[in-house]
């Protein structure tokens, strides 16, 4: 079950045996994380219960509304930087009317889900790991287990569902704001009027870009929640452990967002 003890090497283990055991333990950890994700997904129908829905709404608020300010700023400025940099290059060939397509397509395909993934990983994932980790070291998870309340259903599933709803929405929002930021730079710095910016963008952006981008965001949402909750729930050793769990949750989420993002792109293009 979820309550686990720290991994220990037998006293007699030599160097190679330790290496072998460490690899084995690492793989087992990956397996447990995947299993946690699968379990949480399987419990999704539980959200039909009114009592579970309240927690789901609370999580929607936490990961959606509370990360909105950061996402807004980052999205806007990313779009502006993107437009500015490509604009400088395109101007050399007198093609700056095409910044619209450069900004929108890269936003749709890559930047929007990527930014959403990183920001939610940093803001929401870390908070999940810290909260569940604190609950773990304060025996609150143990208390749930004694009451036979499944911690996965009670804690992980609402968070997972909220992230699965919010990551695509926030990704779309990022995309819109990024494009808007690009348009502002186009109009103020590069003399590209709004109509030209939009028509150039819409000429190249395809629905597929949008759907793949949203799908990617959804995958990121699942990854971040699973990784962060797993780190939280396997925290040991007090406050130090909580810090460590939070750090690991953010690092692993970031790496996976990058690596998995590449493979999803490879698969669709």
């Amino acid at each position: 079950m979820i309550t686990r003890e720290p991994f220990e090497y037998p006293d007699s283990a030599g160097y190679f045996q330790r290496l072998y055991l460490a690899t084995q333990e690492g793989l087992a950890e990956v397996g447990r994380a995947v299993l946690l994700g699968v379990r949480a997904l399987r419990e999704l129908p539980d959200l039909r219960r009114p009592k579970a829905r309240a927690e789901f709404l609370r999580q929607l608020y936490i990961c959606g509304i509370e990360s909105l300010p950061v996402i807004t700023v980052v999205a806007l400025f990313t779009g502006m930087i993107l437009a500015f940099q490509t604009g400088i290059e395109l101007r050399r060939y007198n093609q700056e009317v095409y910044i619209g397509s450069a900004v929108m397509v890269s936003m749709l395909r890559e930047m929007a889900p990527f930014i959403t993934g990183l920001i939610l990983g940093a803001c929401v994932g870390s908070a999940m790991a810290a909260q569940l980790g604190t609950m773990k070291v304060n025996d609150e998870i143990a208390a749930l287990e004694i009451m036979s309340i499944n911690p996965v259903r009670f804690l992980v599933t609402p968070r997972l569902a909220a992230m699965m709803v919010m990551t695509p929405i926030l990704s779309f929002y990022t995309c819109m704001l990024g494009s808007l930021g690009g348009a502002v730079i186009g109009m103020t710095q590069l003399n590209v009027p709004w109509e030209q910016y939009m028509s150039a963008g819409l000429e190249f952006a395809r629905p597929k870009d949008l759907f793949v981008g949203l799908f990617k965001a959804l995958v990121y949402g699942i990854i971040i929640t699973t990784v962060s909750c797993n780190e939280g729930l396997t925290t040991t050793q007090g406050a130090v452990g909580v810090g460590e769990a939070t750090r690991r949750a953010v690092i692993i989420s970031f790496l996976l967002v990058l690596v998995v993002g590449y493979f999803v792109t490879r698969f669709f293009y």
């Binding site: 609950m135 304060n138 025996d139 609150e140 208390a143 004694i146 036979s148």
Partner: peptide, 19 residues
């Protein structure tokens, strides 16, 4: 689950849910 259902457990720190 059935065996645990026969127990009540007071944890050393209370272990209440903060929210």
């Amino acid at each position: 689950e059935r065996l645990r259902g026969r127990f009540g457990y007071l944890f050393q720190g209370g272990a209440l849910l903060g929210w």
